[in-house]
């Protein structure tokens, strides 16, 4: 089965967009390319003692991967995800996404880059509380200057794809934690990103909700080739991941690829 939302948009019908964004040529490169970290380090020195959150991390993630970054608390998982997602900048090293050195982008260009190429699912409070599920999914496409018709059509299809067709008009406070995370996945997929970064997406969910969410993400990965990168402690996520990167004290301790496909 192919989900309608993941058919390529026939044209990039944004009104006047992208302003200050990337060229379509570059966008094509990104779609084909990988995430590449070369000797990336991150040192926080806000306190008296500098803290090395990442230490010379080398990592390549290819298109279509379903990767879990695991490790104990404070091992640097979230920092790594933040740096890949352009939410934080490394202290040293290079990070390339589809050949673009994201660290060199200005703040505004980086925001555009995230908007167009990266989907985010955070641990909790992912949604804008005053908007309905449908409006939350629509929101990023509004930032992309998609037409209203296009936005509504895709948002409805995405919510249907995550099994929330009957909750479109509900606000986040009227949804369960699992439903909110599914809306967040739909929202992350809305701009047709190159990959999705999910920071402990199942951390606050009961096992049924977590299972449902993982089923949806695994299906999107398997059937649509969407690239997922998780940071997680959750054994259920680790079990479903095809690749598990373990971080210890900010450095990669192991990087294991599983042969069997995600179920």
């Amino acid at each position: 089965m192919t989900y309608a939302p993941f058919k390529d948009w026939e044209n990039d019908g944004r009104k006047g967009a992208p302003r200050g964004g990337l060229t379509s040529n570059l966008k094509n490169q990104i779609i084909m390319a990988v995430i590449k970290l070369d000797k990336v380090s991150k040192i926080y020195d806000a306190g008296k003692i500098p803290v090395q959150a990442l230490d010379q991390v080398n990592l390549e993630i290819e298109r279509g991967e379903f990767t879990a970054i695991v490790g104990p608390s404070g091992s640097g998982k979230t920092t790594l995800l933040n740096i890949i997602g352009g939410l934080d900048r490394p202290s040293s090293g290079d990070i390339e996404v589809g050949g673009v050195d994201v660290d060199q982008l200005s703040d505004n260009k980086l925001i555009d880059f995230r908007k167009d190429h990266i989907g985010f699912v955070f641990q909790s409070y992912n949604l804008i509380p005053v908007l309905t599920a449908l409006e939350n999914v629509e929101f990023v496409m509004l930032l992309q200057k998609r037409s209203r018709k296009e936005r509504l059509e895709r948002a409805r299809e995405l919510l249907q794809a995550v099994g929330l067709e009957d909750k479109m008009d509900k606000r986040p406070s009227e949804l369960s934690g699992g439903q909110q995370q599914r809306v967040a996945v739909a929202r992350a997929l809305a701009p047709k990103p190159s990959f999705i970064l999910a920071d402990e997406p199942t951390a606050n969910l009961d096992s049924t909700s977590a299972g449902n969410l993982l089923d949806i993400m695994a299906k999107l990965n398997a059937q649509e080739g969407i690239t997922f990168v998780f940071s997680t402690h959750d054994p259920r996520v680790i079990e479903r991941a095809r690749r598990v990167v373990t971080l210890v004290d900010g450095a990669i301790a192991s990087d294991v690829r599983k042969s069997e496909p995600v179920q």
């Binding site: 997602g85 505004n108 925001i111 995230r114 804008i128 929101f139 990023v140 930032l143 929202r187």
Partner: peptide, 10 residues
């Protein structure tokens, strides 16, 4: 923070 993260200009 969330809004800027998902692509809303400051």
């Amino acid at each position: 923070g969330l809004l800027v993260a998902i692509g809303m200009k400051r």
